[in-house]
Design a protein around this nucleic acid. Structure first.
Lengths: 238, 238
DNA sequence: CGGAATGTTGATATGCCTCAACTAAAGTGG
DNA sequence: CCACTTTAGTTGAGGCATATCAACATTCCG
């Protein structure tokens, strides 16, 4: 049987938080409204004052800020179960946009229902708060990644993170992962020019540790990849 | 009269959150225990599992991660009123350390008291949650800063942020701000070599927009500085 | 006053960016 | 299904911002 939107939501929170049956029941009572996003369609834009939050049901979304000359800085990538705009609950205006990377489906829920749920269960508050704190840890790691590593290491580290998170969320079984990221977007995430990303991808391919092509990431040698990238998953708090 | 530790705590939260008198009263009942930190002393270390949080009373602290070769990546800088380890409440193991920049004083409070307070006031929960969300916004901006700007712009943007935050927190009146940051630490924050920081500092000085020397930041021409750095304070959500 | 830490400056090296051309893959209409 | 167009990926050459190396000046601090 297909997992419902509520299954996806609850399973993801259980990755890092303990929920009592009563808490799960509260979450399952949330009115979730599906919304389909076309490739590169924005879920929310910088400056928006949203009154709903969204949990990703299927596909990938990316957070980004728009640069003065029109380019983008991607901040983080998100997959099924993530809440890419949870901070909208308590920050009035969004300081960044969120867009679909390939096609994607989200399930939206009005803030008022979330707030009402918070009054009824502190564990649920903690679980969602923790979700936003793990986001922050991902941002911290991105600062370190983009500030202190070489082009190839940056790419490898990002791929390690996405692969590891996807695996922990139960999205993959084998060595491969659907990842609808163009090399240009990788560059905008890693602070690299498109040409440098391409060279890093080819170096990765040549090393035999992993490959990224046709929107698929395949990891052949995880220890090699993780060592090369200096990847330590502790920051994901799973 | 000197502001008490509780004054500092409450005032800072009021910068971004509305608190009813009853909420403030709860905050003022927290048992705060002062702790003095020597210059560069660690408040907490990577891997710690703290059972207390700390609010800064006086001085500056910096978050950092340790790099494989022993260097540091500073992630954010914090001043009086900030909670540099609030995430320790819900993330078991810290993924980064926090150290004093110059000498500093913090006030610690056991997590159990904070948790007890959360049961009694949702506005207090929201205020502290919002505090951690603004931290995350600062991290996001650091990603963009270190990934997409030139050396001089990075420096200018960081100084804009620190100056603006200090002003909003009521820490400064005139054009100057005590900022005990060495050029080496600025480099470790901005992903730049020490020599490049020095050249950026001198360029800033030569431009007449601001100066940074003897642990003092002086802003002579705020519009010029902010324009040069592409600084927009919206992300600080004040 | 002396030694250590911090800041300054020049010369050289290098990793990444820019520009430019081409190839391959994906999407589209006949 | 093919011809065509568009998008994405690949490769080389050259330039530039920043890193690295090295020396010296200044400030801090006991």
């Amino acid at each position: 049987m297909q997992p419902t939107h509520h299954d996806i939501l609850v399973r993801k929170l259980r990755v890092h938080s303990e929920l009592a049956p009563a808490d799960e029941e509260l979450l399952r009572q949330l009115p979730l409204r599906p919304r389909r996003l076309k490739p590169s369609e924005d879920l929310v834009r910088e400056g928006d004052e949203p009154h709903v939050s969204a949990v990703i049901v299927e596909g990938w979304l990316g957070r980004y800020q728009t640069l003065p000359r029109g380019g983008r800085q991607y901040l983080s990538m998100h997959m099924a179960g993530d809440w890419p705009d949870a901070q909208g609950l308590f920050l009035k205006r969004l300081d960044h946009a969120v867009c679909a990377l390939g096609g994607a489906t989200v399930a939206t829920v009005p803030h008022e229902y979330l707030r009402a749920m918070f009054d009824r269960s502190r564990p649920v508050v903690e679980a969602l708060w923790r979700e936003t704190l793990i986001d922050a840890a991902i941002f911290r790691q991105a600062i370190t990644n983009n500030s202190s590593r070489t082009a190839a290491q940056r790419l490898a580290h990002l791929l390690c993170e996405l692969f590891y998170r996807a695996k922990q969320s139960g999205l993959i079984a084998g060595p491969s992962l659907d990842l609808p990221l163009k090399q240009e977007q990788l560059g905008e995430a890693l602070g690299l020019a498109l040409v440098s990303v391409n060279r890093a991808v080819r170096a990765l391919r040549a090393s035999g540790a992993a490959d990224l092509r046709h929107e698929t990431l395949t990891v052949f040698d995880w220890p090699k990849l993780a060592t090369w990238a200096d990847f330590d998953p502790a920051y994901l708090h799973i």
